[in-house]
Amino acid sequence: MDPIIILQAGVATGTVLLFATIGEIFAERAGVLNLGVEGMMLMGAMSAFSVANSTGNAWLGVLVGMLVAGLLSQLHAFIVIQLQADQVVSGLALTFVGTGLSLVLGEGLSKAGAGALLPRFSLPGLAAIPFLGPIFFTNQSVMVYLGYLLAPAAWYYIYHTRPGMNLRAIGEYPAAADSMGVNIYRLRYFYVFVGGMLAGLAGATISLAVSPGWFSELTTGGQGWIAVGLVIFAQWNPLRAMFGAYAFGALRRLILDIQGPALLFGASNIFKTHQSLTYFLEMLPYAFTVIILVIGSREAVRNRLGAPAALGVPYVRGERGR
């Protein structure tokens, strides 16, 4: 139970959550709730692992994983943007489709063992910083470093660029953006696609870096749902998402590691003696997610947190009588 190791591993697992959360932030900022993150992550993880294994090129795996998840997201986009169906129902269905499809297509992959993986390395110089160096910059996957760049970049894009401003507008008050010639439909498709690609990246990060391999639905183990909750926790802000993702990642690792030592705070470790208690611990991140989702679904709370006002509302042009 070394705190440095827990935090170091927390950042690595948290990177998975970070990619998925930022992806969902893009989709929700555009006004589209996509509850299919879990399904898209599984498709991403499976196809990335499969391609990396058969071609021996992990980067090609990442690319394919992102594209496959991105394509899957377009099914949701078509249903909710074009056909204006309920976003919650369609998102749930997408998770079922993604999960089922990845299990069928990934059959046999679980015996395949890890092949080509993404590189991991330490950053010279930065790794020498006391405390922070070992946690953030030592022996981490390339994906972890990508996460450090992606979150601030996404933040800058949303708040300080013109396309980011348009993105916020179409999630807040699409009619205003439409009246000024912003193409709502095209942009919503685009940001749902971005969300799907990032969910795919999250999946590929699991199967090619953080815990390599294909373990059917246990590969993601519900992390897609945690990401959906983290979006609310992060108040649709990629920088806050960084904090939340790493904290949840560290929590997951802590729950694993706490079962190791014989003594905990000087007393006998009940999580070692009573293995069944660990199930309770393992439940905690999901229980947190459920609580965040429930609290976050209240109108007053949403307004205070700054939820996009048009989130979940299909846009229909020029109807009289609002």
Binding site: H160, T161, R162, P163, G164, M165, N166, R168, A169, E172, Y173, A175, A176, A177, S179, M180, G181, V182, G306, A309
Partner: peptide, 23 residues
């Protein structure tokens, strides 16, 4: 047709082709 959570300037710039990328 104004986005309530955005500033006056952002609302005025909404949908224009400039500034190109940075606001």
């Amino acid at each position: 047709m104004l986005v309530p959570s955005q500033s006056v300037t952002e609302n005025i710039l909404l949908g224009l082709d400039h500034p190109r990328f940075r606001l």
